[in-house]
Every structure is written in structure tokens, then in C-alpha cells.
Nucleic acid binder design. Structure first.
Lengths: 248, 248
DNA sequence: GAGTGGTCTAGACCACCCG
DNA sequence: GGGTGGTCTAGACCACTCG
């Protein structure tokens, strides 16, 4: 493996063993061999399966834990991460109340429909313009105060059978629903944030004056293999809340 | 070490060896034994010094590297991180151009003076109201377009001798100056972001209409030991730029 | 070729959880 | 008491850098 060839090696042909193990474990996560919330085999068991030492498996799992794909619990084992836990809820929700403890908002769905992807949406979701997408529009409120108006675009192929009923009856974060019902786990996301003036539509939904300044966020979320699976455009009212970020 | 006592242990008295080593190395970084940009002793050397195995030193340095306090370079050694490098420049500057490659803005200083800390500033900087602080106001421009107006508050005791001249003549990011001239390295920061309307002052400096929506950021930066050493309140024009964030 | 960080192994022991 | 992850060690070898 990684033997020199007659021509100079262009690409880095060397891949550490623990990275290969990590890739194998990731495959099992992706294929659903171990589902979110479940216990994965112990380190010694995986070491035997892959014919490597425990230390090598350990280093692979270390990285997966750092990327929030699994969670280690001393004395119990290693578990597949899930969006169904308090810990995970605030990983993607960065809007915090200026006073008081963070909590999850209530959702009201305005619109849920299937349509064909506009060019800009298609580009961000790695689809072709005209491909089927699910469009969702909702308003979220903290303690009854409408604060977020959000439009989501999801690849239609992945989210077949997603209806307004499913969304309404489901309690908890939407990423939990996506994970349980559609086998799609959001791993990471990139966000672009700017300041804008509320247009008439947003102003009406948030019950504020038009031209109130709002935070505008465009988020693209990715699942395994860096595949984009959600475009979310949100407007945030930041009178009683702020977007929290840690720079490190 | 960590011996059981007659009474039940209340606090977790156990601290892994590598954490203790990490703390010792951090002390040396803080004390200036190894300065930013410099090479620190090799892993074997540190292992000998601390009478532990190389693996233990390695794990300590692994964490320091993950926290951006040091940088490893295979074949060369481990270096103390510094803000004088391209890599570091965009760790704290999250405003990116919508088009084109990120680059550093030019600064124009509006005001540099020493005064007594208002109550809110004192609280965030862990000072007493009335303590001496340095106040800086500046405008930053990308390609000649004024885009950021920023007010900084710094503890007067730490930044003795900081003058407008030093700021103006210094080329490069301000954190580089703070590091080189005042021995204060910014390690991490927390940021609160909201949308606001430009007031007359900001509008004049940014050459925009009053009531243009702007991103308002309040950042508190910390040095070693989680000590707050900078409060920065910025207004960002997001017509041609956006605040970039990675959620993971 | 010597020195550095990076990988891999094997084995011992510790802290934690649970039946 | 037996299983799990967590720590620590000692030693071998690999990849990279530089004189």
C-alpha cells in the first residue's frame, strides 16, 4: 500500500489506518447499521472486527466524537448522536433571549408545498433547476412573541411524503423529524448573515412595523458526505433576542 | 495523589496527568517563556522535563493545538500561535465579501483616548466602574468602501502606552499589535449579533442613508485564564458583505 | 542522517456504570 | 464483578524537513 511508482506521486496517496477505520465506521453510520441514539459496538469489538489495535479504533472514534457524529459515555459505551436530545437542540439554533434561559420556540406552519426548484435554490442544494423540492414556510414564537419567519427548501427525492400534517403533529425540533422519519441527519451547516429591513410580508407575520431591521440568515445544511440537504432562509427579530456566536 | 480522605470527596479530585501537563505548558505560554511564533521544546524534551511519557505530552499538546494556542508542523516542531499570519487573520474577522476573495480592510482611526469605564463596559471587562480604559473608534474600508465602524474598550492597566500614533503606524491586524507590543494574546471571543438601524453618526461615517439596516456585533475577547481584555462594538454594512459562520 | 511530529501497537491500570 | 470508555506507558516504525 502506498508504494512508490515510476512517476512521481502527485496526490497524497498516504492515508493513516485510523482514517480508514473512521471511514468504515462512518459508512456504518450512514447506512443505518447503527441508528441515531443507539449504542455502537465497543472499542475492543471494533478492533477485533477491523483487525487493528484498540488504540487505532479509539483515535478514529475520537475524531467522530469531535465532529458530533457519536457521543462517548464513560462506563456505558459510544452512542450515535441524535437531534432528539437537549444537548443537540442549540447546536443549530443560535438565537438566544437577551434575558432568561434559552428555550425552544413554538412553530406555526404557514405553507407546505411541493414545487420545482428555482435556479438559485437548485444551485445551493446541488440539484438541477426544475427538480422537485419541498417548500416550507413557518413562523416561530418565543413565549407567544413571533420572532422568526423562515422558508425551507428540501430536496423532494429525499423528503418524499413530508406533509403539513406530519410537521404539525410532530413535537420537537424539525431536525429530529428529518432524522427519524426520513433517515437524513444534519451534520453541519454554513450560514451567511446580514441585516435587512422587514418587507410587508415579514412585518405582518411578525406583527411589527415594516422597515424594522431584521437579521437575515441563509443556511445550507449538510448530511454525510458533505451533501447539501436543506436550504433555510430566516428572518430574525432581534429586539429581545440576539444571535450568539463563539469565536475560537 | 488523589488519595481518598476520611470524608467523602465532594469535588472531582481527579485530574488526568495530561491535563496537568497541559496546564504547565499553558503557564509557560502565558509567562512568555516561549513567545508567539517561536518553537517550543520537542515532545521528547518536554517528556523528559516533566518526567512523563511522550504520549502524555502529546495528548496535552493535541488539546492546545485544537484550541489554537500552538501549531504543529510535521518535521519541524511545535510553534506558539501568533496573530501575525494569514491563517489567523480570519479567525476573528467573519465579514466576507459576497463576491471575490476575503481580504483585510484598511483602518482609519477616528478617536483614541483614555477615560473611565462606564458601568456596562466595566462589567463586561471584569473591571470596576471608573477604572481607566482605552477607547478607540475607527472605520474600516474594503477597497475604499467604508463598511465597518467599530468602538473598542480596553483595560487601561494592560494597554498602557497605547497611542493613536502606534495604531496608525502599525500595519496589519490590531490583535498582532496587542500581542507584540502589549503581550496580550486574544484566545477566544463571544459575540452577540443583532440588526439595527444606522443612527446619524454611523450613517455619516459609512456614507449611507440614516436608517439603513446594519449588523450590530458586541464582542468580548478573552486571553489566557479566560480573562476578558477587549470589548468591541461594531456596526457592519452588509450590502456587499455578509457575516460568515460555520455550525458544527 | 539526524531530528521532529505522526502512527500503530500491546499491555496495564483507573474511573465509571450497572446488574 | 464484569463491561465500558479513559489514561498512561514503552517501543517501533513512518512521513516530513533541513542541513
Amino acid at each position: 500500500m502506498n508504494a512508490p511508482t515510476a512517476v512521481a506521486a502527485i496526490a497524497p496517496t498516504f492515508s493513516p489506518l485510523y482514517q480508514q477505520i473512521k471511514a468504515l465506521i462512518t459508512q456504518s453510520l450512514q447506512s443505518g447499521e447503527w441508528k441515531p441514539g443507539e449504542l455502537i459496538p465497543s472499542e475492543v469489538e471494533l478492533a477485533n472486527r477491523f483487525k487493528v489495535s484498540q488504540g487505532t479504533v479509539r483515535k478514529a472514534i475520537d475524531e467522530l466524537a469531535a465532529e458530533n457524529l457519536v457521543m462517548r459515555k464513560q462506563g456505558k459505551g459510544t452512542f450515535v448522536s441524535t437531534h432528539h436530545e437537549a444537548r443537540a437542540h442549540f447546536r443549530f439554533l443560535r438565537l438566544m433571549p437577551d434575558e432568561g434561559v434559552p428555550h425552544y420556540p413554538e412553530s406555526k406552519f404557514i405553507e407546505v408545498k411541493r414545487l420545482r426548484a428555482p435556479a438559485d435554490v437548485a444551485r445551493l442544494l446541488d440539484l438541477k433547476a426544475g427538480d422537485a423540492v419541498v417548500f416550507i414556510k413557518r413562523v416561530q414564537s418565543f413565549d407567544g412573541v413571533p420572532t422568526i419567519v423562515e422558508e425551507l427548501w428540501l430536496p423532494g427525492a429525499t423528503f418524499k411524503g413530508l406533509t403539513a400534517e406530519r410537521l404539525v403533529e410532530y413535537k420537537g425540533p424539525m431536525y429530529g423529524l428529518f432524522e427519524s422519519e426520513f433517515g437524513t441527519r444534519m451534520i453541519r451547516a454554513t450560514e451567511k448573515i446580514r441585516a435587512v429591513c422587514a418587507d410587508d410580508g415579514a412585518a405582518a407575520l411578525l406583527k411589527i412595523a415594516a422597515s424594522t431591521p431584521l437579521l437575515a440568515s441563509e443556511r445550507v445544511s449538510f448530511t454525510y458526505g458533505d451533501k447539501p440537504v436543506e436550504l433555510r432562509r430566516g428572518l430574525y427579530l432581534t429586539e429581545q433576542h440576539h444571535y450568539h456566536n463563539e469565536l475560537s
